[in-house]
Computed example of a mutant assay.
Amino acid sequence: MNGKKLTRSTNDRWVAGILGGVAEYLDWEPGMLRLAYVLLTVFSAGFPGLLLYLFLWIVMPRR
């Protein structure tokens, strides 16, 4: 393993730091991840992305 932990970001956050933390964990660009997340959430039936975001907000620990 690489020793990294999936945590909410304290530096790169808009709402809860979920997508910033995922972007840091995966070494991706946070802006591109947010854009992809919003597009997938808007164009999915029933907005499952909102439920996933709320679930991760509860489950993911803060850094």
Score class of each variant (00 low, 15 high):
residue 8 R to H: 04
residue 50 L to A: 09
residue 50 L to N: 11
residue 55 F to T: 05
residue 10 T to D: 07
residue 17 G to K: 04
residue 3 G to W: 02
residue 46 G to T: 05
residue 1 M to N: 05
residue 17 G to A: 10
residue 31 G to N: 08
residue 18 I to T: 11
residue 8 R to L: 14
residue 27 D to F: 00
residue 32 M to C: 06
residue 11 N to S: 15
residue 39 L to P: 01
residue 61 P to R: 13
residue 42 V to F: 06
residue 3 G to N: 14
residue 45 A to D: 04
residue 47 F to P: 00
residue 42 V to W: 07
residue 13 R to Q: 08
residue 19 L to Q: 00
residue 22 V to I: 15
residue 59 V to W: 07
residue 53 Y to E: 03
residue 27 D to R: 05
residue 53 Y to F: 13
residue 7 T to K: 06
residue 32 M to F: 12
residue 53 Y to V: 06
residue 43 F to R: 07
residue 16 A to K: 07
residue 12 D to A: 03
residue 5 K to T: 12
residue 57 W to K: 15
residue 14 W to G: 08
residue 30 P to D: 11
residue 8 R to F: 00
residue 24 E to T: 00
residue 41 T to P: 01
residue 50 L to K: 05
residue 27 D to C: 06
residue 57 W to G: 07
residue 3 G to A: 14
residue 7 T to E: 03
residue 46 G to H: 07
residue 29 E to K: 01
residue 34 R to G: 11
residue 49 G to R: 08
residue 40 L to S: 12
residue 9 S to R: 08
residue 61 P to W: 05
residue 24 E to G: 00
residue 4 K to G: 01
residue 15 V to E: 13
residue 45 A to V: 14
residue 41 T to Y: 03
residue 41 T to S: 13
residue 54 L to G: 15
residue 45 A to C: 08
residue 17 G to V: 03
residue 31 G to H: 12
residue 10 T to Q: 11
residue 25 Y to K: 13
residue 32 M to G: 09
residue 12 D to S: 10
residue 53 Y to K: 01
residue 33 L to I: 08
residue 10 T to P: 00
residue 41 T to H: 12
residue 12 D to C: 12
residue 35 L to R: 15
residue 19 L to P: 02
residue 31 G to W: 11
residue 7 T to N: 03
residue 20 G to S: 04
residue 45 A to I: 15
residue 37 Y to P: 02
residue 13 R to W: 08
residue 48 P to G: 06
residue 16 A to H: 09
residue 58 I to R: 11
residue 48 P to N: 10
residue 29 E to L: 00
residue 56 L to G: 10
residue 25 Y to V: 05
residue 28 W to L: 15
residue 55 F to C: 11
residue 31 G to E: 07
residue 43 F to H: 07
residue 55 F to I: 12
residue 6 L to Y: 02
residue 16 A to D: 09
residue 59 V to G: 00
residue 19 L to R: 00
residue 20 G to H: 08
residue 4 K to T: 03
residue 13 R to Y: 14
residue 41 T to G: 08
residue 34 R to P: 01
residue 31 G to C: 01
residue 25 Y to S: 10
residue 48 P to S: 12
residue 30 P to R: 14
residue 42 V to R: 03
residue 61 P to Q: 15
residue 49 G to W: 02
residue 18 I to W: 02
residue 9 S to H: 12
residue 16 A to G: 06
residue 35 L to N: 14
residue 27 D to P: 00
residue 26 L to D: 04
residue 18 I to R: 03
residue 21 G to P: 04
residue 63 R to W: 03
residue 18 I to Q: 06
residue 34 R to M: 13
residue 61 P to A: 10
residue 40 L to D: 10
residue 20 G to W: 02
residue 5 K to N: 14
residue 38 V to R: 07
residue 13 R to H: 06
residue 36 A to H: 10
residue 23 A to G: 01
residue 51 L to I: 13
residue 6 L to A: 12
residue 61 P to T: 07
residue 47 F to M: 09
residue 42 V to P: 01
residue 5 K to R: 14
residue 34 R to K: 15
residue 16 A to M: 09
residue 7 T to G: 02
residue 17 G to E: 09
residue 14 W to V: 11
residue 57 W to V: 09
residue 19 L to K: 02
residue 5 K to H: 10
residue 21 G to M: 09
residue 37 Y to T: 12
residue 49 G to E: 05
residue 7 T to I: 03
residue 42 V to H: 04
residue 29 E to M: 02
residue 53 Y to R: 00
residue 32 M to W: 12
residue 21 G to T: 09
residue 22 V to E: 06
residue 45 A to W: 11
residue 13 R to L: 08
residue 4 K to Y: 04
residue 54 L to Y: 13
residue 55 F to H: 06
residue 14 W to Q: 11
residue 26 L to I: 09
